[in-house]
Design a protein around this nucleic acid. Structure first.
Lengths: 137, 137
DNA sequence: ACTGAAATATACCGGAG
DNA sequence: CTCCGGTATATTTCAGT
């Protein structure tokens, strides 16, 4: 399904998803049309889900990043999962196995902002906040 | 520094970073050249750090995703931070505040693969693994 | 998967507001 | 200083092979 050439294309796109088909083709020795066809197939088969921009949130005045582990109260899980999608500070959410059952990645302007978010989350479960100091990788 | 129009452009790029300048311009009523100039500036000022592809790792046979919290042994932190970059299963790493001091996001093919990774990490600190069940957001 | 050719888009520069 | 046209160059797109 996904051959060696597809993997090469994906590697290139991981580094810069805005490259033209022509440029990608030059990098891996393939004609632009073939690159296009392959990327089209990768999109159609849902292997490629989308293309994102990597932003420097520090410069956008979002200085605070944190992971929040939530132990959701019994019976509150489905409503919590619904609410998540409307809280824009939550940039990623995963259900997990363990003592807590939801893992959030959140992006905030400052400590007050974090406090407000935690206040909202407390209605759904017990929270444990892991404040990010720096991105290492 | 970053005005209303820039924010609009960033919103568009968040949803699809592969759109042409012309298309972005059409969406926000700006000429292609202006879109280009603004994006160039956002890149130059390091507000835009790069463009990524969002992959469906399940279809690429990476069925297992986990977060690993590491309480690094005293004196091992710098060597651990160096090693991180050479372990390709670790897709993201953050230094955090709390009982543990490093938060990892890892991507694996299966449980054996996870076990091998944890064995390697155990040389540097105590680990707590949060296995991902599903992505909720 | 490649080629060719028409339709689009980009990059660059000069000029207007 | 930002935005917009004009144009030469490059890319995309689609047909046919």
């Amino acid at each position: 399904m996904v051959d060696k050439i597809d993997v090469k294309i994906l590697e290139v796109l991981k580094n810069n998803s805005r490259l033209s088909f022509a440029e990608i083709g030059r990098m891996i020795n393939l004609s632009p049309s073939s690159v296009r066809e392959r990327i089209q197939k990768l999109e159609d088969s849902q292997i490629i889900l989308g293309y994102n921009v990597n932003l420097n949130y520090k410069l956008l005045e979002y200085d605070l990043e944190a992971f929040i582990l939530v132990k959701v109260f019994h019976g509150k899980l489905t409503s919590f999962l619904n609410v998540l999608n409307h809280i824009e500070e939550i940039v990623e959410a995963h259900r997990i196995i363990g003592n807590q059952n939801v893992h959030l990645k959140v992006l905030l302007k400052n400590q007050i902002h974090l406090q407000e978010l935690i206040d909202r989350l407390m209605a759904f479960g017990d929270t444990q906040t892991l404040l990010v100091l720096s991105k290492v990788k």
